[in-house]
Design a binder for these strands. Structure first.
Length: 414
RNA sequence: GUGGGUGUAGCUCAGGGGCAGAGCACUAGACUGUGGCUCUAGGAGCCGGGGGUUCGAAUCCCCUCACCCACCCCA
């Protein structure tokens, strides 16, 4: 019989890892709440068209990485490849927008992309993200970066910085795209094959081609900031003021471009020194809400890749104290039922093995379970109305009376 | 989607045409009410799957699948 294996690109997060995830999840959620964000939990399935409209039909994510299918009624659906589209959809759908009102939402969950699996990259992967809807002021962009910075510090990440850039408002962005396209069309011969395709689909991406020759060619195009309208320039200027004032480590990178169509103006990515890939990325998307059928609502947000985050966080996880009950004989086993119940009621993790084992086997179990304490109860103990409490780390043990064992264990554990 | 690497015991891996191996882990005993340390013994595998070459294939060839790494893309 063949054994079942996880399907390509999927991964199990096993005990040993889950503790790290839980820690990171708690820090992220607490940080977001502290900044006024509330959790939203959209479904993982949406209409395929929602993603086409938001991310861009020509993007790689839609054109070759989306998990899409038809259900029994022939509806064209897709597993979400990212979170923003769903959040915006839910935002629009749930209530009529109130002008000037700021809505802060965070989400966490699995995303799906049919990519080739690689280090830190899976077909089902987890993202934590936040979206701030209704905020136009550039300081909101700053606040988004500040929240990421806060999270990084709370997770004890060191040696990180933000790459920041602006793409301009939709007008500036498309104008600049054309400027770059025409500037580089003249140099098409010096571009690599990939970049020639990029020239047609998303010329801005040539700026961060791995090929140095392409980047050199791209350098002849004017920088974004040289072509922006005054409003866009001011917006970016104020954003820079915010991050400077907040003391957030930033590096301006005029080549920074995001792969999703909906970004406008501010874009940023979180990098940890030595890593090539961004841990988190985001930016402003002032047109998306309207494009998805909502009222004109400026917005800014970011998403953070959990797998990548987990791999760079230095975890110092404390073991929670626990007790293993070694009950020998039928009478002790019966007594054990109430003992473990009482321990658990006191918030002390307790486990036992119901097979009738000798003390040796019980201690071995206790050792393997990782319990710091072993409570030994056998016929001898029952006769004297006392138990033996053994410290599994030091090997020391003491007799404790049945009447006061709970109190004594609580003392020792704290 | 492209390129490279690797699939052998539960785990980490050695063996590269002629008996299927080591370390760790596991089980038992030394030690029948004291785990970890030590020693001894033991269990065990369609050598990823399919096809081919050969007297003979874990080993060579072809196909396939999976994992890893890089590109692409992205978090």
């Amino acid at each position: 019989m063949d054994r079942y294996k996880k399907v390509r690109g999927m991964h199990d997060i096993m005990p040993g890892e889950t503790e790290k995830w839980q820690f990171a999840e708690t820090v992220l959620a607490d940080s977001a709440k502290l900044h006024g964000y509330r959790e939203i939990r959209p479904p993982v399935i949406e209409e395929r068209m929602l993603f086409e409209r938001s991310i861009g039909a020509s993007s790689d994510i839609i054109s070759k990485e989306i998990y899409s299918f038809q259900d029994r009624k022939g509806r064209h659906l897709a597993l979400r490849p990212e979170g923003t589209a769903s959040v915006v959809r839910a935002f629009i759908e749930s209530a009529p927008p109130i002008p000037g009102k700021i809505t802060r939402l965070y989400y966490y969950g699995p995303m799906f992309r049919y990519d080739r699996p690689q280090k830190g990259r899976y077909r089902q992967f987890y993202q934590f993200g936040v979206e701030l809807l209704g905020g136009k002021h550039p300081f909101f962009d700053g606040e988004a970066v500040a929240l990421l910075d806060f999270m990084a510090r709370k997770l004890n990440i060191t040696g990180y910085y933000f790459a920041i850039n602006t793409l301009g408002c939709p007008k500036c962005k498309s104008a600049y795209t054309e400027i770059v396209r025409s500037a580089l069309s003249a140099k098409e011969d010096s571009l690599c094959e990939d970049c020639r395709t990029r020239l047609k689909i998303s010329p801005l991406r040539i700026f961060d081609c791995k090929n140095a020759e392409c980047r050199e060619s791209a350098a002849c195009a004017p920088a974004v900031t040289e072509t922006l309208c005054k409003e866009c320039l001011d917006h970016f200027g104020e954003f820079e003021e915010y991050v400077k004032k907040a003391g957030i480590p930033c590096k301006k990178q005029s080549g920074l471009v995001r792969g999703l169509d909906y970004y406008t103006r501010t874009v940023f990515e979180l990098y940890v020194n030595g890593d090539e890939n961004a841990v988190a990325a985001g930016g402003r998307y002032d047109s998306l809400v309207r494009e998805l059928g909502g009222a004109d609502t400026p917005a800014v947000g970011f998403a953070l890749g959990m797998e990548r985050l987990i791999s760079i966080v230095n975890f110092k996880l404390e073991k929670t104290p626990s007790v293993y009950l070694a009950a020998m004989g039928k009478a002790a086993a019966l007594k054990g039922i109430s003992i473990v119940k009482e321990l658990r009621n006191e918030g002390i993790a307790a486990e036992t093995d119901y097979e009738d084992r000798g003390l040796k086997a019980h201690l071995k179990n206790a050792d393997r379970s990782g319990a710091q304490w072993c409570l030994i109860v056998g016929d001898r103990e029952l006769e004297k109305n006392e138990f033996i409490l053994k410290n599994m780390v030091t090997g020391e043990q003491e007799n404790i009376s049945e009447d006061t064992y709970l109190k004594r264990i609580k003392e020792l554990i704290k």
